[in-house]
Structure formats: C-alpha cells, structure tokens
C-alpha cells in the first residue's frame, strides 16, 4: 500500500484546487455574460421579456443547484449530446450565477432615482446614451460589492460538481479520504483551502461595501 504523507495530501489537493479555480472563473465569466444580456433585455421594459426573466430567476433560485446540475448532466445526454461532467458543471453554474446576478443588478439599477432617467431625456440623451453615461457608471459602483460577495457562492457552488464526477477540490478530498482513511485531516485541509479562496473575496466585498456607503 502507498503511504500518503501530509505533503502528498496537500500537494494533491492543491492540484485539484486549480480545477476549482478554473471552474469558478468559467462559471463567473459565463454568468456575468448571460446576466448582462438578461439585464439589457429587462431594461427594454417589454412585459413578455421581463415576465420571462422573472420566471427564469424564480426557477433557478427556487431549485437546488444539485438538481440543476443533474438536469444539465442527464438532460442534455437525453437529447443526444454527449456532455462531459466539466461541460455540465460549467453550464449549470453559469445559469445559476446569471439568475442571481440579474436579480442583484436589478436591485442596483432600480435604486437609482427615476429623475435621472427623466433628466437624461430632457437633455436629449437617447436610451443607450442614458445607459452608457448616466445609469451604468452609478449602478456599477453599487453593484460591485454584492457581485463580488456573490462570487463566494459560486466558488462554493463548484463543490457540487464533485457529485456528478468532476474531479475538483471536494472530489479530490473524497478520493484521498478513501485512500488514507483520515477523513478528519483531509476534509479539514479541504475546508481550509476553500476558506483561503473565499475569504479574500468576502473581505473585498465587505471593504467595498463600506467604501461606497461612506461616499453616498
């Protein structure tokens, strides 16, 4: 039997951490892109579009992320697409992230006083100009802290990809546990690595929140 030293455990966990980071980045970038499109669609104030987006948010916030992953993983293979665990994880995390971000950003845009839109119209700015020069710069400031705060949820969400068989930090932890029979140590290390990834994000979000609250 191969002996695992502490060094081996940590080294293997860190190798798997790269996949956690990569998956988080892919999901967050994908989520931002989809959420941007949805936010733009929502700003058109088309009742059908806003209704659909509301439904989308409700569905993704009202069902477990694990279910969404299962559905992506098994559902897409049903229509004949041979989807890997990585693709299923990225897809489901992207949809999950976008649903939450679109809701966060909705709050940020809606806090802007209505007078800003009206003033821009009086000044002869078009819809896109108002968005580009008036609304977005202000909304961006307000949205930054909660968006970074939500990225912590994305990193933690990637842990569920282990359930559909994608080898990232949590999966590596269970595999190492099976090899070493030292669950206490292995999962403590896993938790610490997640903490090291997430805590800086939480802290940044908190600091930004304070900074922008003071300026207002």
């Amino acid at each position: 039997m191969i002996e695992f030293s502490n060094y081996d455990i940590i080294r293997n966990l860190l190798i798997a951490t790269q996949w956690t980071v990569l998956l988080s980045l892919a999901a967050f970038v994908g989520g931002i892109s989809v959420a941007l499109c949805l936010t733009a669609a929502r700003l058109t104030k088309n009742p059908v579009l806003t209704g659909l987006i509301k439904f989308y948010v409700e569905v993704f916030q009202g069902t477990p992320l694990l279910m969404q992953m299962f559905l992506c993983f098994f559902g897409l293979s049903l229509v004949g697409l041979n989807i890997s665990a990585w693709n299923a994880a990225v897809l489901s995390l992207t949809l999950f992230t976008s649903a939450f971000l679109v809701e966060i950003w909705r709050g940020c845009i809606d806090t802007l006083p209505k007078g800003q839109w009206e003033a821009s119209r009086c000044l002869g700015l078009s819809f896109l100009q108002t968005l580009r020069y008036v609304v977005l710069p202000q909304a961006f400031k307000v949205a930054l802290a909660p968006s970074i705060g939500f990225s912590v949820q994305v990193v933690k969400g990637t842990a569920l990809a282990s359930v559909i068989g994608f080898v990232e930090l949590t999966k590596a932890g269970t595999m190492l546990n099976n090899a070493t029979f030292e669950p206490f140590k292995v999962f403590a290390f896993v938790a610490l690595i997640y903490f090291a990834l997430c805590y800086p994000l939480s802290l940044t979000s908190k600091i930004l929140e304070k900074k922008f609250n003071v300026s207002r």
């Binding site: 932890g173 669950p183 999962f187 403590a188 938790a191 997640y194």
Partner: peptide, 14 residues
C-alpha cells in the same frame, strides 16, 4: 466561506 458539502463530509466522516 466553506462549501456546505465539505462541512457535511467533515461532520459525517471526520
């Protein structure tokens, strides 16, 4: 700042 599933594994297995 840690995932729920890891907390669960830590409590159940650890």
């Amino acid at each position: 700042n840690t995932p729920f599933i890891v907390q669960l594994f830590f409590i159940f297995f650890g």
